[in-house]
């Protein structure tokens, strides 16, 4: 057969048109404007604040240098917790997923932990780790751990055992099975788990700060609420939203590099038919 070109995927990824981007920008401006107008026309500042007040509050927060301090603290808590939780969750999920005997043994415990609303453990973590950064790190790590662990474990267990058998037939030793079959296979699931788990790192840090803290973005939000400073609350929320968006962007970049094959259908154009 003559060498042809690689068929591009049947469903090319829909890319946002420039026109769409303008539309989205327009919608955002409209929403902000509506927010401002409603706040002024109906005097709802107390409950909804207003974009101008929030912007002013953000400016004050940044100028005082406190924003940098809070941001650094919260990001450190979430970041360290995220790394610990992802590594531990990915590793243990991977091991229990592939070692079926061990996985079967732990399955009932895993399931009972799965159903537990893990946020309820926050007070316990104060008891264990105090009210410093360690507490938030461990709490964030715990939340991320479970997301990454369950996703990796369940995804890995779906593997077709015949795939491993077939690799053995092709001459794979134990080590080959781990490095060339098991790890690449589970990588997809670990990444999925990490993506699902990422927001939980921030949730963990914020909830930890709500429960007991002396600084941090979550602490500022709680503090502002107790002073009925709605603008500061919204300022805190906006900072959180920005953090999540940046993190998600970073993760997407990383994933598209590590798992190039998943989007191959859309990206690889014609091969060189030599």
């Amino acid at each position: 057969m003559s060498g042809g070109s690689i068929p591009s995927g049947s469903t090319p990824r829909r890319r946002a048109l420039p026109a769409d981007a303008f539309l989205q920008l327009g919608l955002a401006i409209l929403a902000v404007a509506a927010w401002e107008i409603v706040a002024r026309a109906f005097g709802t500042d107390f409950w909804t604040s207003s974009p101008s007040a929030v912007a002013a509050e953000l400016g004050r927060w940044a100028a005082s240098g406190q924003l940098a301090v809070d941001l650094q603290l919260t990001l450190t808590e979430a970041g360290v917790g995220f790394v610990i939780g992802s590594v531990a969750g990915g590793l243990i999920g991977f091991i229990l997923g592939w070692m079926t005997r061990l996985g079967d043994l732990f399955e009932p415990f895993i399931l009972s932990l799965y159903t537990l609303p893990k946020i309820a453990l926050a007070p316990l973590f104060v008891l264990w780790f105090g009210i410093g950064a360690t507490n938030k790190i461990m709490f964030a790590a715990m939340l991320v751990f479970f997301m990454v662990f369950f996703t990796t474990y369940q995804g890995t267990r779906q593997v077709d055992r015949d795939l491993v058998e077939n690799a053995r037939l092709l001459g794979a030793g134990k080590w080959d099975i781990w490095t060339k079959i098991a790890i690449p296979y589970s990588a997809v699931w670990i990444f999925t788990g990490i993506r699902i788990g990422l927001p939980y790192a921030l949730i963990g840090a914020i909830v930890g700060e709500f429960v007991a803290a002396e600084a941090g973005v979550g602490f500022r939000i709680k503090e502002a609420t107790s002073f009925f400073n709605t603008a500061a609350v919204f300022a805190g929320l906006i900072v959180l939203m920005c953090i999540s968006l940046v993190l998600l962007g970073l993760l997407k970049l990383l994933e598209s590099r590590a798992l190039a094959w998943q989007s191959a259908g859309n990206r690889v154009s014609a091969g060189d038919p030599t």
């Binding site: 003559s2 060498g3 690689i6 995927g9 191959a264 690889v268 091969g271 038919p273």
Partner: peptide, 26 residues
Amino acid sequence: VGLGGFEKAYPRQLSGGMLQRVMIAR
């Protein structure tokens, strides 16, 4: 197996018959 030109393609980009030929080539 007549898959020249498809060396760099991923399985999800191939048809059933082509995948079968990859198995044969392997």
